[in-house]
Computed example of a mutant assay.
Amino acid sequence: MSSGERPELGEVPETALWTLWYRAVEARRPDAVLHDPKAVELVDRIDFPFADRFGTSGTQAQLQALRASCFDREVADFLDREPRGTVVSLGEGLETQYWRVDNGRARWLGVDLPEAVALRERLLPPGPRRRHLAADATDLSWADEVDHSRAVLISAQGLLMYLPPMQVRALIAGCAERLPGATFLLDAVPRWFSHLTLTGRMRSHAYQPPPMPWAMDADERGKLRTAGPAVAAVRDVRPTGGRGLVGALLPLALAVPPFATRRPSVVALEFSAR
């Protein structure tokens, strides 16, 4: 345990420490599938019993890193097409994606609850192109802070599963209406995983993740188009690479039922332009 920042976060905001820790665990490896030196730096600065609380599972670390890599790939592709675009990160927590994929010209807006933003600003102060907004992501007033003259990508990594299903639909529909032409990236846990969290039977070492009321099996992603008429397209974003047994089994998990349909998923939604 370090002698640095001591975070005191609620149940859902604390998940930011969980994902940060496992990105750092993976990034410390010489054969890491995700290079994230900023995550390693943060873990070393934060006074928190990460290993005692969350464990040190190499498999968990690699899976977290592969999920983050899906988001990184999509954001990097977006910035290749729209170098001066805006990336909006909903429920940003202690995500360090900016340091992994920023192109030096894009604008970044992080939206999170006040306690999470307060911690982030102490650890990762905003910069000329990177702002933080203390707000509930489901309150779409944050969209007023987005420059509508620029292309927009909205990232909701590790957020939607903690919301009621109707709030998820309302958030997607609201973003599609208020930010036409934008891309919306999200991830979803499968229904069996959600059920375990709702019944208190999901544990990771000494940590019990919060309930995750919204879930979606991978073959249900087409239903996201029904969230609103401005949702024009839905695309599956699949992890690539992997190391050891995870790397060997990943192609099977993506192609062979029932694993292919009951796996976690990352999805890109495209909103129609007015």
Score class of each variant (00 low, 15 high):
residue 5 E to L: 08
residue 153 L to R: 04
residue 109 L to W: 14
residue 227 A to F: 00
residue 47 D to I: 10
residue 27 A to L: 04
residue 94 L to W: 00
residue 104 G to Q: 03
residue 162 Y to F: 04
residue 179 L to N: 06
residue 189 V to W: 09
residue 47 D to K: 06
residue 49 P to E: 14
residue 78 F to P: 03
residue 78 F to V: 03
residue 230 A to Q: 15
residue 57 S to N: 06
residue 212 M to G: 00
residue 247 G to R: 00
residue 28 R to Q: 14
residue 227 A to W: 01
residue 188 A to Y: 11
residue 203 R to M: 07
residue 215 A to S: 15
residue 255 A to F: 12
residue 223 K to V: 06
residue 96 T to R: 11
residue 124 L to T: 01
residue 196 L to K: 05
residue 106 A to S: 10
residue 253 A to I: 07
residue 160 L to Y: 00
residue 212 M to F: 00
residue 2 S to M: 10
residue 253 A to D: 13
residue 143 A to K: 02
residue 98 Y to Q: 13
residue 238 R to N: 11
residue 72 D to S: 02
residue 131 R to E: 14
residue 116 A to M: 04
residue 2 S to A: 14
residue 75 V to G: 10
residue 108 W to V: 04
residue 253 A to G: 11
residue 269 L to M: 04
residue 106 A to C: 05
residue 99 W to K: 06
residue 55 G to C: 12
residue 162 Y to W: 00
residue 169 R to W: 10
residue 45 R to Y: 06
residue 258 P to Y: 11
residue 135 A to W: 03
residue 118 A to G: 10
residue 97 Q to A: 09
residue 251 P to C: 02
residue 261 T to S: 09
residue 229 P to A: 13
residue 31 D to G: 05
residue 239 P to S: 04
residue 2 S to I: 09
residue 212 M to P: 02
residue 138 T to C: 10
residue 135 A to I: 06
residue 22 Y to C: 12
residue 260 A to R: 13
residue 61 A to R: 07
residue 20 L to E: 08
residue 256 V to N: 00
residue 169 R to P: 06
residue 42 L to R: 06
residue 3 S to W: 14
residue 212 M to N: 02
residue 123 L to G: 07
residue 162 Y to Q: 00
residue 194 S to T: 09
residue 184 F to T: 08
residue 95 E to T: 12
residue 109 L to D: 05
residue 80 D to G: 10
residue 263 R to N: 01
residue 38 K to Y: 00
residue 195 H to P: 05
residue 217 D to Q: 12
residue 205 H to L: 08
residue 249 L to A: 08
residue 190 P to S: 12
residue 38 K to H: 13
residue 71 F to E: 08
residue 54 F to M: 11
residue 210 P to E: 03
residue 247 G to K: 03
residue 63 L to V: 14
residue 93 G to K: 05
residue 40 V to C: 02
residue 38 K to F: 04
residue 99 W to D: 15
residue 51 A to Q: 15
residue 215 A to C: 05
residue 244 G to N: 11
residue 140 L to E: 12
residue 14 E to V: 09
residue 138 T to H: 05
residue 207 Y to D: 09
residue 131 R to L: 11
residue 263 R to E: 03
residue 239 P to R: 03
residue 52 D to Q: 10
residue 61 A to M: 07
